[in-house]
Each structure stands twice: as C-alpha cells, then as structure tokens.
Amino acid sequence: MAAGTTLRPSSRTPVLDRERALTLAATEYARFGALLRSLGPADWARPTDCPDWDVRAMAGHVLGMAEMAATLRASLAQNAAAARAGGGIDALTALQVRRNADLTTAELIDRFAAVAPRAVRGRRRLGGVLRRLTVPEDQMVGGRPERWTFGYLLDVILTRDTWMHRVDISRATGREPELTAEHDGVLVGDVVAEWASRHGRPYRLRLTGPAGGDWSAGPEPDEELELDAVEFCRVLSGRGTGGGLLAEQVPF
C-alpha cells in the first residue's frame, strides 16, 4: 500500500453487508474448486472468452488472486513485481499466470483448495480503516478512470472475478455452472444495483434463470429488458454485446 494513500470522495465502496460478502466469497471459492476438480485432461487447453487465456491460464490467474488475498505479504510481493513489469491489472494478472504456469493441474487444484480458506480469512482481517482507503491506481471501467476502496476490491471485485471465471470455464468446457438464488442470485442482484447506480436512468429488468429476478426504477422506464442473468453479467463485463443501458459496463 502506498504511503499517504487516502480516501477520495469518489472512491467506490461496497454495498453488500461485509459478513454476507465473506460468505459469498467462501461459497464461490468452493464452487470454483469443485469445477476445477471436475475437469478432464483435454479441458485444460480449451480456449475461453478471454482471448489470451485457455482454461489452464485462467485457473492460474484465479489461484494467484486467491494467494494475493490470503496474506498482506503476498499482496505486497505480487503488486511490487507487477509494478516492475509496468504496473496495472494486466501486469498483475500476467504475473499470476506466469508464476503458476509450471504447476501440474493436480498441483494447481491442491494449491487452490489449500489457499481458498486462507484467502477468506485474509479478506476478513483487513480492518475498517484500511478498507476505507483508496486503491492507489485508477481502474478503467467502460473507458473511464475511477477509484475503488480496498473494501470494494476485496468484498466485491475478487468474488465477482472468481464467479465470472467460473462461468468462463464452464462455457469453455461445455458444463452448466452451478447456480442458486441464495448465492448467485445475491451476486447478480449486487451487479444490478451497481449497474442501475452507474446509468441512473429509469428501467425495468427481468433476468431469467436460477440467479434471476425482477428490478425496476422510475414509473416510465427508458428501456424494458429481459435476458438470462448470467448473460446479463457477461454483457456488462464486456464479454457480450449490448446497446442502450446494456452498454453500461460493470467491473468483474
């Protein structure tokens, strides 16, 4: 963490209750680990919706993110190494993929299973003062720079990132992702709330599937939308195409 880092008024903060956010994190790590254990030998080389990553590289990135969340020491080391490589999220994720590239798939699965509970504990340990501090670097969302608090990064983004990559790997390997209202529905609902706050316009939205629901704002909506809940999140993440209100990007 850079010396002198302070909270900026525009820094994005989490909306979800922290205990619920940590429960979501633990469940998401468990589901991601179960997906990895289900993969066959041919699955690891399959291309994903992230053009530069096959399944194996994507899993290495998710493992690296969990390792970064587990301890402050790992977080500082990864970010320092990424800074030496040019800085930014692309440098960080490339570092994670590269560092885990020599693991066998069995080693990767075992390492993820071991680090997942430690990552949840690491995210829990971050105190209120640190959670309110602003991440030093600008984050680009929809082509616009913005600032996040560490609380938003840890409570929201790290879980959304794992969730979306679970969807990516499921799609790449022809599996139906495990989806429930109690877990995925809460994650999707948080995405909807943030999406609505970002565009600020009246709307009606119906999302279908186990993670779906109905949302609206304003008596006369600018748009009425109906689509699958997972596809809605994929579009907002930049993985699909959408115009109008669906062009409003939300970070994952």
Rank of each mutant, 00 (worst) to 15 (best):
L7Y: 10
R12D: 15
E19K: 11
R20S: 14
L24E: 03
L24S: 04
T27I: 14
Y29F: 11
Y29I: 04
R31D: 15
A34C: 03
A34R: 10
L36N: 05
L36H: 06
S38L: 00
L39S: 01
D43P: 05
W44K: 02
A45E: 11
R46I: 09
W53Y: 07
D54T: 12
H61K: 00
R73Y: 08
L76Q: 07
N79Q: 13
A81V: 02
G87Q: 05
G88Q: 02
A91I: 04
A94I: 11
R98E: 13
A101Q: 08
T104R: 04
T105L: 00
D110A: 15
L126H: 11
G127V: 09
V129W: 15
L130E: 15
R132W: 11
T134S: 12
P136V: 09
P136I: 07
G142M: 00
W148C: 00
I157G: 03
I157Q: 11
R160Y: 09
W163N: 01
R166Q: 12
S170P: 02
R171V: 05
E176A: 13
E178T: 07
E182M: 01
H183A: 04
G185Q: 01
G185R: 00
V188E: 00
G189V: 00
D190P: 02
E194C: 04
W195F: 06
A196T: 02
A196R: 06
H199Q: 01
G200K: 06
R201H: 05
L205N: 09
S216A: 15
P221Y: 13
L225F: 07
E226S: 12
L227T: 05
D228G: 08
E231V: 11
E231H: 05
R234K: 11
G240V: 03
L245Y: 04
Q249H: 13
P251F: 05
